[in-house]
Nucleic acid binder design. Structure first.
Lengths: 210, 210
DNA sequence: GCAAATTAATGATTTATTCAAG
DNA sequence: CTTGAATAAATCATTAATTTGC
């Protein structure tokens, strides 16, 4: 189901290899243009969109950190366990025999004094407002919006034309021109007070309808 | 400093009132088209962009939850304190006098039994991969990308043209047409093996350069 | 009254968590 | 069980309120 009716992107082997190589080369949070370049390049090997690249890096970075953390905590736990065991053994041996065994553990576990006794193991007036999801107004103009973007590479602020999408954004290119939404006056009066009483969004803390 | 050289949006009184009204009406996570409509409408009262609306709802919702949580924990703490005091008093009284006082507390605090005593409480091998942030290739084509978007209102998947921007995305409109990045072949070979050795992104868990 | 200095709000990002497709 | 996608939580950074000393 990878080719046509697939709901989510799954990277081809080549795409994955390249992404990993890029990651290994030090790229963690690619900029907009970087993402675009990567996407363009990778689209040679199969269907791919900018957001896929974006998400890939995001997840990869996060899961890398996660892996590291787990690794570290495991190590710590192991160390602590070892220390604990060591301590207990040490104690036990002290009680059974004396100098010989005690000195043995001193050697293998790094105790500095043969007879140390203490150890630390520290740790929004209309309640009937409605929006037509279908969007009846001119989508071309309605969905574009100008935006300043700071480019970390060139260290310049660029004016980009953008539009919104569920919880995310996309550049539409645009040259350097002073631009603002104010200049572009509202296209038509927003239908904010319709007659119906239906509510669109009832979500409260719970997850929104999908 | 609200009008011109301001780095961040600060809502006008009207804008804020409308946003709050919308929120009160039940809107929590507005869809792309909702955001666009709101933005268009609000731009009548001052400079505003879609992302501002997006962030506003996000923050407002989050801080509402936060407020609620804090309120609840405070209440709980108070309750527990009261119970504790009550319990102590109860005990104290038991020791001093008998039936009369004990029964008094039963009444006001809801003890069920007068004498209860317990409570439960990537294929490259170049480690020097580089991307020009400036983006030398045709930005128009390079930065646009087609994308399917699920519209929760109409419950339809729409094809939208989009572009990427630092950690975000924007709709650029587009009618319903089968479209994919594959169809749009890579515009030019990506300059993946430059001569320099400079690394772009060294970020590791730390915050990226701004 | 008025700025400089602090603090409180809140806009904008980044990170963590969760969901669900494969 | 992995991992793409989405959402929520945490955090950072700037702006508006306040306070403070003169």
């Amino acid at each position: 189901m990878s080719p046509a009716g697939s709901s989510r992107w799954s990277p081809t082997t080549e795409q994955l290899m390249i992404l990993e190589e890029l990651y290994r080369s030090g790229i963690r949070t690619p900029s907009a243009s970087q993402i675009q370049q990567i996407t363009t390049h990778l689209s040679f090997y199969g269907r791919i969109e900018g957001k896929n690249v974006f998400y890939w890096f995001q997840n990869h970075k996060a899961r890398d950190r996660q892996k590291l953390r787990r690794k570290l905590t495991k190590q710590l736990q192991l160390q602590q366990q070892q220390q604990q065991q060591q301590f207990q053994l040490h104690h036990h041996c002290q009680q059974l025999n004396q100098d010989h065994i005690t000195n043995h553990f001193v050697g293998s576990f790094g105790y500095s004094t043969a007879r140390s006794t203490t150890h630390d193991f520290s740790f929004f007036n209309s309640p009937s407002l409605i929006f037509q999801g279908g969007a009846a107004n001119t989508p071309e103009q309605a969905l574009s919006c100008k935006w300043n973007v700071h480019n970390p590479q060139s260290n310049l602020v660029e004016n980009k034309e953008m539009a919104f999408c569920n919880y995310g954004w996309t550049l539409v290119d645009v040259d350097n021109q002073a631009s603002s939404c104010c200049t572009t006056r509202p296209l038509k009066t927003l239908d904010l007070f319709p007659l119906t009483t239906t509510r669109i969004n009832e979500d409260c803390t719970a997850t929104p309808p999908k």
